[in-house]
């Protein structure tokens, strides 16, 4: 229920201009809906929760044994091919499996994002199983993923902590030995949060004492802002900066200018 509330609010915002009252009333409706749903869910479903969790863990264990154990070991203890998963937490599983990085297809400098191999409920089951093995970062609370934080703070933190690898516009960049920091444009808020929290592959960990959950939410808000507002100047040329600008000027601007000089100096019929 909480999940369905936020996309509809986003849709309402996307339709364009509205009166200042509209946002306030929307906010009230959203809060009421979320809160109400949460209250209903917690009161009526407490009894079922524990049994649901156990069934999810056992389902996750089966999935793990079939899909992950060959590298990570039957008890997720790790092997020479893959690290241990004890204590990595549900957030790590949700990120790795939810972005299709796991199960890994081939070894290379880096395991890349690809088509997701499991359904949402299967991912949740896997995450529950791995979370049951030892304490680790949990899947983030939805309140941090709304994209409604302070974009200015988020932008500043992004420049200090993220831009050196992912580029100021989140376009990605090169690391050593063929590794790279991926483009962030189409990454969901939840996965960005989980990546900061767990530090997948080359990425360092940004624990909650380094970047607080609220600041993580601010960073996500900045990235959401960039996704929602196309570059004010026109096409962004992949946000790659002066290199793509230089290529553009040589190929398109100077190219069309040369074509015009040819026309201009050709004899008319």
């Amino acid at each position: 229920m909480a999940k369905t509330a936020s996309p509809s609010a986003r849709k309402a915002r996307a339709t364009g201009r509205r009166s200042p009252l509209a946002s306030v009333s929307l906010l009230v409706i959203g809060l009421l809906a979320t809160g109400g749903a949460y209250a209903m869910f917690t009161t009526s479903a407490t009894a079922e929760t524990s049994s649901q969790v156990t069934s999810m863990v056992s389902q996750g264990q089966k999935l793990f044994a079939a899909n992950c154990a060959s590298c990570h070991g039957m008890n997720a203890q790790g092997s020479s091919a893959a690290p241990t998963l004890i204590g990595v937490g549900a957030a790590s599983v949700d990120f790795q499996v939810g972005t299709g990085r796991m199960p890994a297809a081939a070894t290379g400098p880096q395991i890349a994002k690809k088509a997701v191999q499991f359904t949402d409920s299967q991912i949740a089951a896997l995450a529950a199983y791995v979370a049951s093995l030892g304490p680790g970062p949990a899947i983030p609370e939805p309140q941090y993923l709304t994209g409604k934080g302070n974009v200015a703070t988020g932008a500043e933190l992004f420049r200090v902590n993220c831009a050196m690898c992912h580029n100021v516009a989140g376009a990605g960049g090169a690391l050593t030995q063929g590794k790279y920091a991926p483009n962030l444009h189409s990454v969901s808020a939840k996965h960005i949060y989980e990546a900061m929290l767990t530090g997948p592959q080359s990425m360092p960990v940004f624990n909650d004492l380094n970047i607080t959950p609220q600041d993580k939410a601010n960073i996500i808000s900045y990235l959401t802002y960039l996704n929602k507002n196309p570059s004010p100047g026109g096409l962004s040329l992949g946000d790659l900066g002066p290199v793509s600008e230089g290529l553009f000027v040589w190929i398109f601007a100077l190219g069309s200018v040369v074509a015009i000089t040819v026309w201009l100096t050709a004899k008319s019929n």
């Binding site: 500043e156 933190l157 200090v160 902590n161 360092p204 960990v205 940004f206 624990n207 004492l209 380094n210």
Partner: peptide, 21 residues
């Protein structure tokens, strides 16, 4: 302290794999 906020850092804040600016 943390860049840009200037909040001091405890040794226990710095977990394995972390990086602080």
């Amino acid at each position: 302290t943390k860049d840009p906020s200037g909040v001091p850092i405890k040794a226990s804040d710095v977990t394995l794999g972390s990086v602080f600016h």
